[in-house]
């Protein structure tokens, strides 16, 4: 590859270093201190796994377990629903030619990204109360499904844009119906994008605090809402342990999504 001195601006490398430092220091610090034996949490006084034990067996562990189960259930279902809708939408946007409403559709699918989160939260709360739906698993699930759609849509449509319609055309030339062309040709090629989209919307759902907090009602908690409730009174070490666990889950899922996406790209470079 051509290298030219013009690419390198003095000081930019250092600023990039600072950028990475700023992004990672808080995460690394909290992960390290979650193993701190001292309960005063500031002074390092030796290695311990006690806080992790407390998360799973302590007084509040039942509450956290329930919240974790709720979070997972919502994330699994909401991201599945949004992925299916995003897949259909991507085919509609990229494989159906032009039609009335196509350009506005793109804005509509991206709408959850454009509306400030607090507005979405308020809007959902008002709407559910207007319908007479009190906060529950269902309201949280609906709200999550909505904002997960663009996160599932983007990797799927990016992948689909990389796949020329040539293969499906060839399939129909070889006596496949359109449905067969989709199922036997496009779908397998899209799979990395679909998995990637599912994982991303899964993380987004797992992460959401603000909207969940508005629509959850009393009695239904997810992990972020219980953690938020707990830190109001101060950051206790068991919260740091739980945060580190969630940190790990997010990072693993992102890396997985990235690797699957990349593998897909390399497997059928055209």
């Amino acid at each position: 590859m051509r290298r030219s001195g013009l690419r390198d601006m003095p000081g930019f490398a250092q600023i990039f270093g600072l950028c990475v430092f700023l992004l990672y220091t808080p995460l690394i610090v909290i992960a390290v201190y979650s193993f701190n034996a001292s309960s005063s949490i500031t002074i390092w006084s030796g290695f311990t796994l006690d806080w992790y034990k407390e998360v799973f067996t302590g007084i509040d562990s039942q509450k956290y377990r329930d919240a974790a189960v709720n979070s997972l259930l919502v994330a699994v279902i909401a991201s599945a629903l949004s992925t299916v809708m995003a897949l259909a939408a991507a085919v509609g946007m990229l494989r159906a030619g032009s039609f009335r409403g196509r350009s506005i559709s793109f804005g509509l699918i991206g709408l959850p990204l454009l509306v400030p989160e607090i507005v979405t939260a308020v809007a959902s709360l008002i709407f559910f109360s207007f319908l007479g739906l009190s906060g529950s698993f269902l309201t949280v699930l609906i709200a999550h499904t909505v904002f997960c759609i663009p996160f599932a849509y983007l990797p799927i449509s990016a992948r689909m844009q990389d796949i020329p319609d040539l293969y499906e055309t060839a399939a129909t030339d070889l006596y496949a119906t359109k449905w067969q062309a989709f199922r036997l040709i496009l779908l397998p090629m899209l799979l990395p994008g679909i998995v990637s989209g599912y994982l991303l919307s899964f993380i987004v759902s797992l992460d959401d605090f603000l909207i969940t907090n508005f629509v959850k009602g009393n009695g239904f908690e997810t992990l972020p809402t219980v953690i938020f409730g707990a830190v109001r009174t101060g950051i206790r070490p068991n919260i740091m342990a739980m945060s580190s666990l969630l940190l790990l889950i997010s990072i693993v899922l992102v890396l997985l999504s990235y690797l699957i996406g990349r593998q897909g790209r390399e497997k059928f470079r055209i």
Binding site: V91, G92, A96, F99, G101, S105, K178
Partner: peptide, 20 residues
């Protein structure tokens, strides 16, 4: 087709986008 878009499912667009 070079842009990754096509008319393969021409006319089905609105139906496919309907759920979203």
């Amino acid at each position: 087709s070079a842009r990754g878009t096509s008319r393969l499912y021409q006319g089905k667009g609105p139906w496919l986008l309907l759920p979203a």
